[in-house]
């Protein structure tokens, strides 16, 4: 399980996270919602080792994950799909996928993962030798997710996968994320501005505001809490 205590992160003089604490159980899908600039991206980047924490603790399966490099955390099962369709445009679809499993140094295992990804996103299978920058936005997001699955993750950190996508595609992506959680037993932290959509598929929800936690609870409860709706969901 993921345990975060009093996590504080600074960007120079700007304090982006102020003593954030929460837990996520294994196999749960947690949605983190909040306005632009709330600190969602900073939280994920800190958990994957891209940003340094100023204070606090974060443990994944009793392993201290602060102060480790991203490439090391991947080997502990943490995989981060960063904001904005994180694929490498100059590589082919196939190469983007393979990149995720290089560290495993196991061809047959990689091939197996690749098959799973292509079953999950058949559209990628038709475009394996195309360059990633020839893909549509939705396909890129699928590729980014696929690359992440190739790393055989246990904890998936997803930063706004719905950003800039058409509603139909969003639904597809969200469905895939829900399936991953259920069928593979992954733990997922899903950061979203599309609060409604995220809370629909999530087990628990966490509302971030100006770097602090404003509300937590089951996704269903949060979705129906009038105060949360008014203040953070905007309806």
């Amino acid at each position: 399980m993921l345990r975060i205590e009093n996590l504080t992160v600074d960007h120079g003089a700007i304090r982006a996270l102020r003593g954030v604490s929460f837990n996520v159980e294994k196999g749960q899908l947690a949605a983190i919602i909040g306005a632009n600039g709330a600190g969602k991206t900073t939280l994920l980047r800190t958990l994957s080792g891209l940003n340094k924490a100023s204070e606090g603790q974060a443990h994944w399966n009793d392993h201290n994950i602060l102060h480790s490099k991203p490439e090391k955390l991947v080997r502990h099962g943490i995989s981060h799909v960063s904001e904005g369709k994180s694929v490498i445009p100059g590589l082919t679809v196939s190469e983007n996928l393979e990149l995720g499993s290089l560290w495993r140094r196991n061809r047959s295992e990689s091939a197996k993962s690749k098959k799973e990804v292509l079953e999950l996103f058949p559209r990628l299978g038709e475009r394996l030798s195309q360059r990633a920058d020839s893909l549509s936005g939705g396909e890129r997001q699928m590729l980014a997710l696929g690359r992440s699955i190739m790393s055989k993750p246990e904890l998936l950190l997803l930063d706004e996968p719905s950003l800039g996508l058409a509603p139909l595609v969003i639904e597809q992506i969200f469905q895939a994320i829900r399936d991953l959680t259920t069928t593979k037993g992954l733990t997922v932290i899903l950061v979203e501005q599309n609060a409604m959509g995220a809370l629909k598929i999530a087990d628990v929800g966490i509302v971030l505001n100006l770097g602090s936690i404003a509300a937590t609870g089951s996704a269903a409860a949060l979705k129906d809490d009038p105060a949360v709706r008014a203040a953070y969901l905007g309806f």
Binding site: G49, I88, E95, E98, L99, W103
Partner: peptide
């Protein structure tokens, strides 16, 4: 080769490569 793929990926997108587990 895998090394070649790592070299190309690391040179064009070091951060994504790190997240993919490449020792950049």
């Amino acid at each position: 080769t895998n090394l070649g793929l790592s070299l190309r990926a690391a040179s064009f997108a070091p951060e994504i490569s790190r997240l993919a587990g490449i020792r950049v």
